Amino acid sequence: MQKSQTQFITEKGSRYLGQLCKHFAHKIDAGFEGNHGYANFPFGSAKMRADDNQLEIAIEAADEAALNRTKDVIESHLVRFAFREELEELEWRDAL
């Protein structure tokens, strides 16, 4: 299992957590409660946590290709939702 994680420093972490989970829930198993959320894609899964200062995202997938696809989907949506903050990309840290 391949794993990676990132964080987005923002005061709007809870808002973005809700947006991501609600959006993904239209097509896949996804949801949130309080400051925790998840999204289970056919190719990988994500767990998210928000607080007053950030949004943390941890993902896992069976192989590197699936991990990269999971990163791309989450990142492209978050960049779109956070356009006012001029987010261009996330810095992912892959687990060894």
Rank of each mutant, 00 (worst) to 15 (best):
G13R: 07
I59W: 03
I28E: 06
C21I: 01
E11G: 10
D94Y: 11
G44L: 00
F83P: 08
E11R: 13
K47A: 12
L78R: 00
E60T: 01
S45N: 07
G31Y: 10
E11P: 12
N68T: 06
F43L: 01
Q19A: 06
R49Q: 14
I59Q: 07
E60I: 06
E33C: 03
D51I: 05
F24I: 00
K27P: 01
I28T: 05
F81Y: 06
N68V: 09
M1K: 02
D72F: 08
F43Y: 00
L78W: 01
E60P: 02
A65S: 10
A39K: 08
A58S: 13
E86G: 15
A39L: 11
S14V: 07
I59A: 02
R69M: 01
E86D: 15
L87V: 15
F43S: 00
E86P: 11
Q2G: 00
Q2L: 14
N68L: 14
S76D: 12
L67I: 02
F41T: 00
G44W: 09
L55H: 06
A58H: 09
I57F: 06
L17H: 07
A50Q: 09
F24Q: 01
N68R: 14
A30Q: 03
H26R: 11
N35W: 03
G37N: 13
L17G: 05
A82F: 01
M48F: 12
L55G: 10
E56H: 10
Y38I: 12
L78T: 10
G13Y: 04
D94P: 06
I9E: 15
F43N: 03
D63S: 14
A30Y: 02
N40F: 11
M48C: 11
A61F: 07
E56I: 12
D29N: 08
F8W: 10
M48Y: 04
Q7N: 13
Q54Y: 10
L17T: 00
A39S: 14
G37Y: 14
K71A: 00
T10F: 03
H77P: 00
